[in-house]
Design a protein around this nucleic acid. Structure first.
Lengths: 130, 130
DNA sequence: TATACCGCTATACTTTGGGAAACTACTATT
DNA sequence: AATAGTAGTTTCCCAAAGTATAGCGGTATA
């Protein structure tokens, strides 16, 4: 019993040590678009229209808003070039690049998960035949 | 010029190869609570009320809803024990455990990010004195 | 002159996420 | 009969997220 209490205490302490930084991270990264935009920027500077083309489904309004947020949190920078017509490029900051391992881990997991979803939908089909 | 085009093509192809699985992952993981709940479950089976105590700020409604989603996506399982009063435990599935590296990466980044935010808010204070 | 591209912004709307508080069903204890 | 614990559900509500569509100011091209 004493043992159990100690285990629980230990468990919840470890747990809250993980939960607090996670919340900080989620504050900045959560939402449908930010991580996708950051992935697009992992492969180099890009223009507004190019990001919009790659992040499928995003509207200009959302892209504009999300880019501003990324700038505020110093994950991306905006460069304006005085060309004609004016060209704007967005780039990952050094801080943004520290997200790369996370972004890759997310993608890796997405691949695993997708396989699983496909497999389990096959199983469902099988079962529905019974 | 030819070079540039090839680079761009290559870049966007790589990019969309990452973006598609990422979307799949985000469909299942996005939102304020799911990742936090999963972290709580990393440290072993837990009861509803225990999760609620650890994931600070979550309401029973949200917890209930999110746990259902996690069950549907086979990231967590619900066990009901026929005790009195009835006790229910939630546990990570094998598939859920494949998220552990990602959860740890997220926490790690959260720590890095928090340090940065604190540092830059100090800088702001400095600047505001000028 | 007209059309089209770029990088947005404006407006108006719908949908979803999330919070507060009360309530339920069941059981055990007093 | 009253109270309390467990695991939620229900209701009402608001704010943020997201969609759809249109337009703007500049430039370049036909």
């Amino acid at each position: 019993m004493q043992d159990t209490l100690i285990k629980i205490e230990h468990g919840t302490e470890q747990c809250s040590r993980m939960l607090l930084p996670t919340k900080d991270a989620l504050d900045v990264l959560s939402g449908k678009w930010k991580l996708q935009i950051l992935i697009a920027l992992m492969f180099g500077k890009k223009r507004f229209s190019q990001i919009q083309a790659e992040v499928i489904g995003i509207t200009p309004k959302m892209l504009s808003k999300e880019l501003k947020q990324l700038e505020i949190n110093e994950l991306a920078v905006r460069h304006v070039y005085d060309t004609a017509p004016v060209s704007v490029e967005y780039e990952m900051t050094v801080h943004g690049k520290t997200l790369e391992p996370l972004l890759r881990a997310l993608t890796e997991w997405g691949i695993v998960h997708r396989k699983r979803v496909i497999a389990s939908s096959k199983k469902q089909k099988k079962n529905s035949l019974l």
